[in-house]
């Protein structure tokens, strides 16, 4: 099993942290993982993306240009990375913010109004978790329990009270049709 993931959107949407939590959970399952962010002047307010690889073998290059899964949290990210997904791969879109359909027909597509659903659940900043849930549901890449453990281990204690809500959103995301 090997998954090469691109998560992309605006700075501030939790793009980089979503990737980190995923990689951390993979590490907890003793998988080989890497996380590579975009870096530089676009850090604030511009586009942000990260590459995550989770594999049973050794990670080769940490750079992803043939993704198995793309999470696109805005239209510019979809425009840029739609063609970077392998045939047979998956594209997960935050349809609250992306205003177009996917052009390709050789990939599985999920349109999830994640920002709206997260808002309804009480916290719009959890949209990234909703989409990660779908990624986990679609790929069975890691167990949700590992994700929960990664939250407890990486978040500062003052945020731990939010973890049950995040896990609920993750599970809702996993089951979203």
């Amino acid at each position: 099993m090997e998954h090469k993931i691109i998560i992309a959107g605006f700075g501030g949407q939790g793009i980089l942290s979503a990737g980190k939590m995923l990689a951390y959970a993979g590490m907890l399952e003793n998988k080989s993982v890497s996380w590579l962010p975009s870096y530089g002047p676009e850090m604030r307010g511009g586009t942000a993306n990260c590459n995550v690889i989770i594999t049973d073998e050794q990670v080769g290059s940490p750079i992803v240009n043939d993704a198995t899964v793309l999470i696109a949290m805005n239209t510019p990210s979809l425009d840029k990375y739609e063609s970077w997904v392998q045939p047979g791969g998956a594209i997960i879109v935050d349809s609250s913010l992306v205003n177009r359909q996917i052009k390709r027909e050789d990939v599985t597509v999920y349109y999830i109004p994640a920002t709206e659903l997260a808002e309804q659940a009480g916290n719009s900043t959890f949209a990234n978790i909703y989409l990660l849930g779908k990624l986990i549901g679609h790929t069975n890449l890691i167990k949700p329990e590992s994700f929960e453990a990664s939250l407890y281990q990486t978040l500062r204690e003052k945020y731990h009270h939010m973890i049950p809500a995040e896990m609920k959103i993750l599970r809702d995301g996993m089951e979203y049709k």
Partner: peptide
């Protein structure tokens, strides 16, 4: 290089 400095691995 920048990738080595910025990336995360266990």
């Amino acid at each position: 290089d920048g990738n080595l400095g910025q990336m995360m691995e266990p």
